[in-house]
Nucleic acid binder design. Structure first.
Length: 466
RNA sequence: GCCGGGGUGGCCGAACGGUUCAGGCGGCAGCCUGCAGAGCUGCUCUAUGUGGGUUCAACUCCCAUCCCCGGCUCCA
């Protein structure tokens, strides 16, 4: 039985989709004012695992991920650099997709941008004004009156009276009836430069929370199955989305809210000022394999804070290598059939893996099943008990797991460059002649070139140094 | 102040009332190997922040206490 921890109820709940066999999922995406960092990608990897698991379980998933391409930060950054907003954001959108692809994150069906949904957002604000949930302030901005919405706070469990008034709210501002009302529409001011839209509700730009309500309803419908993002979005962002959407439709906005915990760096929060702020590119440039980065990000349960360290990244790299070496080994196994013993083992492993994932994506338990399996099959291979045909079946099962994990890739036998091939041959001859000194020297030379040679019963094998 | 999440072996990280306390990484040793690598086996590993309590039995429940992290208006 597939279960998810629902932030709304703070309990693990059986997953029942609105429409049988289909899942409508909205995943909060990046604000494209700068490069997304690995903390952001932790969330995107989590959402990817979620999507992949739903698909593994046979659901047809329709996923929407928004790109926030207009807000304070995007406007400030583009103006500071003197680049038009859309050019500025496009650069980071490109980088975002590039990094997503490097981390083997599957594509969503839709990537709507805020700036391309202004008319829909205006329409929603108009309706909220008509229904009395919103009001216009003196400067022309339009705010949502949260006291009008009975369920306000149901997701985050915040109590309005206990909310600390943030430093950003101007104390002398009496434009808002309540300090905690939030902007649906921000009237243009000088700081916005040429970023504004002339609309029926005035000259300005949308508030941040608006786009998610609008785009979720536009692409997925008034009520959807899953909405996910980082824990920091629970309040106020997701709380406000609920207020906007449910005030408009009178229907439940989202059935399951899933939130991923933050990534820490060396035990501290990641921050530019602390100098512990990394992008995917930073790590790739340092020579780490994208699969290792992905593995590190997915290997801790999503509701648990993940402490990023370079030691951990190195460990992740070794772990992934263990998996890929196992796949290599399988392609060479050619023993006697293990028969029932192996069949039972495979069946049991699959069952354990699936049960773990079904339990709120308990990936660490699922991985434990995989590693147990790897060890057991390795032992059988050592004993010459795995036939070619069986090895293929094991390989297929591993690929089945990797549909979800996405860290193993396919084993591809790349051809060695000719000069290296010649060196390998030369070493083979030296070995045959028991000229160990020469053979070892060549092996050392190849190692320096990033090629690791391994002598096996079936002859020499090579692999790329990680 | 209010509201959440945590503190598990050298490191990471499951289990959440009960068989030997998953799994990964690291280290050491053995098997294998000309040597190495890979793989396997064993050890490191009779761990659960601290002090009480409940129970036949607690990492798991209760109370107290210390420490860490997060949210409290635009940060995934």
């Amino acid at each position: 039985m597939l279960r998810f921890f629902n932030t709304l109820t703070r309990k693990k709940m059986k997953f029942v989709p609105i429409e049988k066999g289909k899942v409508k999922m909205y995943t909060c995406g990046p604000t494209v004012y700068d490069y997304a960092h690995i903390g952001n990608f932790r969330t995107y990897v989590f959402q990817d695992i979620l999507r992949r698991w739903l698909e593994y379980r046979g659901y047809k998933v329709t996923q929407v991920m928004n790109l926030t391409d207009v807000d304070d930060r995007t406007i400030n950054a583009s103006r500071q650099q003197g680049i038009p907003l859309n050019q500025h954001t496009q650069r980071y959108i490109d980088a975002f997709f590039d990094h997503m692809q490097r981390l083997n994150i599957q594509k969503a069906e839709h990537y709507p941008r805020a700036t391309q949904h202004i008319p829909e957002m205006v329409a929603l604000v108009k309706k909220l004004l008509e229904k009395g949930y919103a009001y216009k302030a003196e400067d022309g901005s339009i705010y949502y009156n949260i006291r009008k919405f009975k369920g306000y706070g149901k997701l985050s469990k915040v109590k309005l009276k206990q909310l600390k008034i943030g430093a950003r709210v101007k104390v002398d501002s009496y434009e808002k009836e309540q300090a905690w009302d939030f902007a649906l529409w921000k009237a243009w001011d000088q700081n916005d430069g040429d970023v504004y839209w002339e609309t029926e509700i005035g000259k300005g730009r949308p508030g941040w929370h608006l786009e998610c309500s609008v785009m979720s309803m536009k692409y997925l419908g008034e009520t959807i199955d899953i909405h996910s993002g980082g824990v920091d979005l629970i309040f106020p962002h997701h709380e406000n989305e609920i207020a906007q959407s449910e005030a408009l439709t009178g229907k439940k906005f989202v059935n399951y809210w899933l939130h991923s915990e933050h990534l820490m760096v060396e035990g501290e929060r990641m921050a530019k000022s602390l100098g512990n702020y990394y992008t995917v590119k930073d790590l790739l440039d340092k020579g780490y394999h994208p699969n290792a980065i992905r593995f590190l990000l997915l290997s801790t349960h999503y509701r648990q804070q993940l402490n990023f360290t370079f030691e951990g990244l190195k460990a992740a790299e070794n772990t992934v290598e263990r998996l890929t070496l196992f796949l290599n080994r399988l392609s060479e196994a050619d023993g006697k059939p293990a028969g029932q013993e192996l069949r039972t083992l495979m069946k049991q492993t699959k069952k354990t893996f699936e049960a773990a994932m079904d339990d709120d994506l308990n990936i660490t338990a699922a991985l434990a099943a995989v590693f147990d399996f790897v060890r057991d099959v390795n032992r059988m291979i050592d004993q010459g008990k795995v036939s070619k045909k069986e090895a293929k079946a094991v390989y297929d099962l591993m690929m089945n797991f990797d549909k979800v994990l996405g860290v193993m890739g396919k084993v591809e036998k790349k051809a060695l460059p000719k000069d290296i091939e010649a060196l390998v041959q030369k070493r083979e001859e030296a070995r045959k002649a028991k000229n160990w000194k020469t053979a070892d020297a060549i092996r050392q030379q190849l190692y320096a070139m990033g090629i690791i040679l391994e002598d096996t019963k079936n002859g020499v094998r090579w692999r790329q140094k990680a």
